[in-house]
């Protein structure tokens, strides 16, 4: 069967639902995408792909709220899949550029350049740690939602998050 044009709406999911999902969740999906892929353009692709998957394969009835943990899980899997397809490196520490130091854990970062440094520090963490930090500290998911998103047992989520926070703080100390 041919994919349906966006304005069709006679069968399948409603295009208005797609707009609603984008409006509500695009930002959170983008952040999860950027925690996995370094390239902003690729993160855009992840967001679009995730939105289409959510629209077509939503686990809830039309008009109902899509569970955030389910959506972010789709986003994460999509990002990993796209990353493999495009053979982009996971931006481990060896591939990151050297940056100037000067950020402390207690100081508010000023300016975009310093925010970029913080992003670089985040990129020094392993993929799970980055995802945990973003999901908990930035997106504000509960531990249960994170466990569902990452397919991990609840205690494992907690212990890995504690260690991820510590690792981020250590990164910042190294840059002082």
């Amino acid at each position: 069967m041919s994919p349906r044009p966006p304005t069709d709406g006679r069968d399948g999911p409603n295009p208005d639902d797609l707009r609603a999902v984008v409006d509500r969740h695009a930002a959170a999906v983008y952040r999860v995408a950027r925690s996995i892929v370094h390239d902003p353009a690729l993160a855009d692709d992840v967001v679009q792909e995730t939105m289409l998957k959510a629209w077509r394969s939503s686990p809830v009835e039309p008009g109902e709220e899509i569970p955030r943990a389910w959506l972010l899980k789709v986003a994460r899997n999509t990002a990993i899949s796209l990353l493999r397809t495009r053979r982009e490196d996971l931006h481990g520490p060896d591939t990151l550029p050297e940056g100037p130091g000067g950020v402390s854990t207690t100081r508010t970062v000023e300016g975009r350049a310093q925010l970029d440094e913080l992003l670089d520090m985040l990129q020094h963490l392993d993929e799970d740690a980055r995802a945990l930090i973003v999901l908990k500290e930035v997106d504000g998911l509960s531990y249960d939602e994170i466990a569902s998103t990452l397919d991990l047992p609840l205690p494992t989520v907690k212990t890995r998050l504690f260690r991820a926070r510590k690792a981020l703080k250590d990164q910042m100390k190294e840059w002082q």
């Binding site: 695009a26 930002a27 902003p40 508010t108 913080l118």
Partner: peptide
């Protein structure tokens, strides 16, 4: 292990999506 409020605010600022993300996503899909 809690991160201080300043760092959390910085993390949120550093990972803020582009302002036109929604429009770009609507157009892209």
């Amino acid at each position: 292990s809690a991160l201080d409020e300043g760092l959390v605010a910085d993390l949120q600022a550093a990972t803020t999506p582009p302002a036109d993300l929604r429009e770009r996503t609507h157009g892209g899909v």
